[in-house]
Simulated assay, not measured.
Amino acid sequence: MAASPLLSLVRKDLVMEWRQKHTLFGVLLYVGSTVFVIYMMNGQPVDKVWNALFWLTQLFVAVNAVAKSFLQESVSRFRYYYSIVKPQTFMLAKMIYSLVLQTFMTLVSLILFWIMLGDPITQNGLFACVALLGGVSLALVFTFISAIAARANQNTGMMAIIGFPLVTPVLMILGNLALKAIAPVYQPGWWTLAGVLALFDGLVVVLSVILFPFLWKE
């Protein structure tokens, strides 16, 4: 029974996303046009440039697709949710919804990169796993930031202020993790970086569950 409100909230967000197809298709159009412009301007880049462009694309996809998860909720709707579910349940539902959406966008981006910008990767399976892990990390971070911005009178500028110091180390770690799948030589410290990223994701989830009830009451 405890999982029922959580699943209902996740389903509600997914149904709303599907009904508002213009938003979803807008992000897909953004991904496709970005990859196409990169191809027209630079052709098929070398491996390290390919890697950097992929993660920059994922950053902007997360900003456009995931960061709006809380900002699209009105004040009156927040009050309604406040009366029917616990704040922790609401926060976890938003995170799961963001994970599903960002994972889908990451897979689409990866396929488009492989098709249009070549495949400089030596271990495609490993890079796909890193890409999905990166999608999880970006989804968690931007959901957390979106929650803070939404409760700060819908202040989108707050997202840029808080997001930069949180997202920058995540992207640096993901870029270095992806090098193992691209570079033909051994990259030391890979598991250490993966562990740091996993700990960071866990910390974001814990902080979200602890801090969001205080934001919820405002």
Rank of each mutant, 00 (worst) to 15 (best):
A128E: 12
V46P: 04
W114H: 09
W55N: 06
A65I: 08
T57C: 10
V130S: 00
P87K: 12
M95Q: 12
L132A: 12
I96R: 09
K48L: 11
N42G: 13
M105C: 15
N124F: 13
F90Y: 14
S109F: 04
L117M: 04
M105K: 12
M91C: 03
L133D: 00
Q123V: 02
S98H: 09
M41V: 13
N124H: 11
I121N: 02
F90M: 13
N51G: 01
F127L: 06
L110M: 12
L132Y: 09
K48G: 00
L99G: 01
Y39M: 10
T103H: 02
S69P: 04
N124V: 14
T57G: 15
L99N: 00
F127E: 07
L112Q: 08
Y39V: 02
K68L: 10
F60P: 11
L133H: 00
L92D: 02
K68I: 07
L59I: 07
T89L: 04
I96S: 06
V108A: 03
R77S: 11
A67F: 05
L71I: 15
N64C: 05
L107A: 11
L110A: 06
N64G: 08
L59K: 09
L71R: 15
Y81V: 04
A131R: 05
A52R: 01
V66H: 04
L99W: 07
A65K: 14
A128Q: 07
L56P: 04
S74Y: 10
M40D: 02
G43M: 09
S98D: 05
L133N: 01
F104K: 06
Q102D: 05
I111W: 13
A52C: 00
M105S: 11
L99D: 01
A93I: 14
K94M: 04
T103R: 07
A128I: 15
A131F: 03
A93V: 02
